[in-house]
Design a protein around this nucleic acid. Sequence first.
DNA 1: GTTGACCTTAGACTTAACTCTAAAGTTTAT
DNA 2: ATAAACTTTAGAGTTAAGTCTAAGGTCAAC
Lengths: 143, 143
Amino acid sequence: MLKISELSAKVGLSAHTLRFYEKNGLVNASVRSESGYRYYNDADVKRVEFVKSARNIGFSLDDISTLLSIRVDKQSHSCQEVTDITQNKLDEVNSKIAELQSMQKILQILLDSCCGGPENAIHCSIMEALEDHEIQSPHEGVS
Amino acid sequence: MLKISELSAKVGLSAHTLRFYEKNGLVNASVRSESGYRYYNDADVKRVEFVKSARNIGFSLDDISTLLSIRVDKQSHSCQEVTDITQNKLDEVNSKIAELQSMQKILQILLDSCCGGPENAIHCSIMEALEDHEIQSPHEGVS
DNA sequence: GTTGACCTTAGACTTAACTCTAAAGTTTAT
DNA sequence: ATAAACTTTAGAGTTAAGTCTAAGGTCAAC
């Protein structure tokens, strides 16, 4: 059984974060000492590691809550529920990538167009591009 | 001279946002009526449009403050100052893209590995991947 | 038997860029 | 002259995922 700082060292999440996860219903210590200290058993550690893996992929804590509830009763849940969550996350990631790529493209064009030297900025083509109405908002409706 | 709601309609930013920008030193109405109403002249409108263009590319309000201060005295600033800001933004965008692409890759692998059907999740390969320690955190030190 | 390291809680703070509210004053249209 | 529509301000709320603090209790070592 691990105390919170031991678990923290083992999984690489701060004790604060572990308590925060508990407050949000993700992981709790299955044992408390008389004085209230948290003690984590092997199953608790596995659960924390599951949360950490899911965080590393980019799942939100909300997603992870759902994944955890599937995890504790896999019998009653389908693969489709799991792929739905995963697909939604992938869609979100893809649209963020698209948005960033459109910024990337414009930034690169701006950089290519400007001398970038010690000349004063009176004829700076980046400033000109920002002043003229050349720049449209990338896909506003995507969230 | 435009009132705030007219400017709002013209540039597509809410009156709230325009006041917020003013509070943060980005744009203010160069004229106030006796009763305190904001009135924006052509130069103000241009400035707001500049801010909007810069926002659309993804510059932070902090970056935009700097760009605006260059804009009002281009004589005293160099193209290099402008390209530095732009290059920093591009670097940031590129590293976010890289991070998202590494998530994307893993999510795609997970989706490809799972049947996604109505079967129960006892042998779900996505759940298994999250339970085993297959998933590493993407570049933690990149910010 | 006391120092120092650890643990507890509730709750405030952080970031960025808004977004909204309340309470009051102003302008416009009829 | 009055109702509707607009404006003002200060300040609170939003989001996500922590991060930190204060004030106190506990445990291990010497």
